[in-house]
Design a protein around this nucleic acid. Structure first.
Lengths: 192, 192
DNA sequence: GAAAATCTGTGACGAAAATCACAAAATGAA
DNA sequence: TTCATTTTGTGATTTTCGTCACAGATTTTC
């Protein structure tokens, strides 16, 4: 009936709001399977943003080029929705890049088709709202970590709350995510 | 017909999604006018979170006590929705405080009544979703500022994108918001 | 499997920011 | 107004972290 990947997607959506079979079936129609090889861009700076990606397998990074350096602002693991929200909602060109950090499988959800869904039923609005609530809570927490925690505490925070990132992501990228120099993070990890 | 404050509220909502007169009228029913004197708490750490506040006049700060120090994580000015989202959505006790930094007028929007509205019409869901999109974009930006910008650049960011905060909020509180020592921010402001 | 590219570890060093300390200024309360 | 409290400015000192440099390790590419 449903493929393996479709079941994973549904389980993920269920965490936010349970769709009926019919609603989920319509939802699947806006999903287009796309795979990316390592280092391929899902969204490139300067380009228009056509939607978001549900990560099935692999890893996706969000970064911005600042003084020629790739500053990572977020990471998306399987079961998460990789996005660059600002350009998506304002319909402007993105200043950031979404890049596959490993070979990655995804469903692409087209922006306009998502908007159509929103008009179709309050169920999709609710799903979107709850997903956003979840994303915002996470982003609040990240800001807090950066505002108040010392380098070592930031690392401990990752260990405790986002341990999967430690294995999946090169330390170099994690450093920019945590607002630290690569060497500092390396030394923190070295002791103990 | 509508009071001054109700018109301000409506104009604010319109920025996200336009409600019909009837919808807005129902919306007003969940709004309860509340005023706070300076230093009064809208939400206290340890307490249950009963909703969000639309700021009519004054200033509201969101802070968390860390090692006995008040670390400010956000500020809300007139026309904004003061909130502590995590405890609101998870229905848990708040670890943070919402406090009036000046004499403040607000509408309190009761959590359960908001949930009822969501069930009533997709229009409210859409409003909530769009408001959340806006909040998330702002929070993404703040994280970026904290991840990538040096102290002086953080101050310039405030000057450029949130200049009202510079006047409305004591420098001491802004320092924690920007992840800096109070003295550092004072010196940045001193030169030039 | 060899070469290239990327990523990590580690020392030395310096710059930047945190901390400490205290005085001055501004604000608020009685 | 006066006193108390809060907020801000500024110097001296210490600490932390970023920067630079380079070697070793790991991963990718062909």
């Amino acid at each position: 009936m449903y493929s393996e990947n479709e079941i994973i997607l549904r389980r993920t959506l269920d965490k936010y709001h349970v769709l009926t079979d019919e609603e989920f079936s319509d939802f699947l129609k806006v999903c287009e399977y796309k795979s990316f090889s390592k280092k391929e861009c899902l969204l490139e700076a300067g380009n228009y943003n056509y939607g978001i990606y549900f990560v099935i397998s692999g890893t996706v990074g969000l970064f911005e080029l600042i003084d020629g350096k790739e500053m990572y602002q977020n990471f998306f693991l399987p079961g998460e929705f990789a996005n660059e929200l600002k350009s998506l909602t304002t319909q402007s060109h993105s200043t950031k890049n979404l890049i596959a950090l490993d070979a990655t499988e995804s469903y692409h959800l087209d922006r306009q088709q998502l908007l159509n869904l929103y008009e179709q039923s309050a169920s999709y609005e609710k799903l979107g709202r709850k997903l956003l609530e979840h994303l915002l809570a996470g982003q609040n927490e990240l800001s807090h970590v950066l505002q108040s925690l010392k380098p070592e505490e930031r690392y401990r925070y990752l260990e405790e709350y986002r341990p999967k990132l430690l294995n999946a992501i090169p330390l170099t990228y994690l450093a920019s995510y945590l607002g630290l120099a690569r060497e500092t993070l390396s030394r923190i990890r070295a002791k103990k």
